[in-house]
Computed example of a mutant assay.
Amino acid sequence: MVGPTHDNEPHAGGINQRLNWLRAGVLGANDGIVSTAALVVGVAGATTATPAILTAGVAGLVGGAISMALGEYVSVSSQRDSEHALIAKERRELKEMPEEELDELTELYRQRGLSEHTARAVAEELTAHDALGAHLQIELGIDQEDLVSPWQAAISSAIAFTIGALLPLLAILLPPEAARIPVTFVSVLAALAVTGAVSARLGGAPWLRATLRLVIGGALALTATLVIGMLMGTTVA
């Protein structure tokens, strides 16, 4: 039976799916950059002790990567379960009401601009070749040979977050003590500008607005945690 079309969803396959995965990777890296940078800058505002900053940064990196992986695994698992349910439903309908399903497929192609005669011919030919595949593709945008993998999504998210988190962690640890926070600010904001432009490009949005939005948000996050860290450091001292 007719269901919602999802031609633009990640499971549509092809180049759109690859772009969606790449966009998700960029966003995961962004999360790693901002969350870890905010954490280490906040700690650096409270103390200059390298072990404390390193411990906070590594803990934030590991915890964030695991959290991202778990969230993505649960989300994609739910999507995959839904896809399997839709496939089973379509398979059952094809077995129980083949003529109605053929009429439905014909109508779907007719709605896409084909004449009644051509739509019927295409529907009959596709049904003879692979009825289930034809219905899944035109009705639901699902390719049963290319279903999303929860494990792949989880691992990809964890890797993207880790790569992003490494930048502020190295930026806060490698420079001399007096330059730690300025170097981290500059490095993080430059990285956010790059990832903002890339994500906007992948999404077909104006790059300047997306980049400014991300850079300003990152600057506010770093400033807020730095101020809190300085206040906490003063209070503790």
Score class of each variant (00 low, 15 high):
L70G: 12
L70M: 15
G71A: 06
G71R: 01
G71F: 03
E72I: 01
E72V: 04
E72W: 01
E72M: 07
Y73C: 07
Y73M: 01
Y73D: 03
V74W: 00
V74H: 04
V74L: 11
S75C: 03
V76K: 05
V76H: 03
S77Y: 08
S77Q: 09
S78E: 11
S78C: 03
S78D: 11
Q79Y: 07
Q79D: 15
R80M: 06
R80G: 00
R80N: 08
D81Q: 13
D81R: 10
S82V: 02
S82G: 13
S82A: 10
S82R: 14
E83A: 06
E83I: 00
E83Y: 05
H84T: 04
H84L: 13
H84V: 05
A85Q: 12
A85N: 05
A85H: 10
L86T: 12
L86E: 11
L86M: 14
L86Y: 11
L86N: 07
I87F: 01
A88T: 07
A88G: 08
A88H: 11
K89M: 11
K89W: 03
K89Q: 13
K89N: 09
E90H: 03
E90W: 02
E90Q: 12
E90D: 10
R91I: 03
R91D: 01
R91A: 08
R91G: 09
R91C: 07
R92K: 15
R92C: 10
E93K: 05
E93Y: 04
L94G: 01
L94E: 08
L94S: 05
K95C: 02
K95P: 00
K95G: 02
K95V: 12
E96L: 09
E96I: 05
E96Q: 13
E96V: 11
E96R: 10
M97G: 08
M97A: 13
M97Y: 15
M97P: 05
P98V: 05
E99M: 10
E99W: 15
E99S: 10
E99Q: 15
E99D: 15
E100V: 07
E100P: 03
E100L: 13
E101L: 00
L102A: 06
L102H: 10
L102S: 01
L102C: 00
L102V: 00
D103G: 11
D103W: 13
D103P: 09
D103Q: 14
E104P: 01
E104D: 14
E104Q: 14
E104C: 10
E104K: 14
L105A: 03
L105N: 00
L105D: 04
L105W: 01
L105Q: 02
L105S: 00
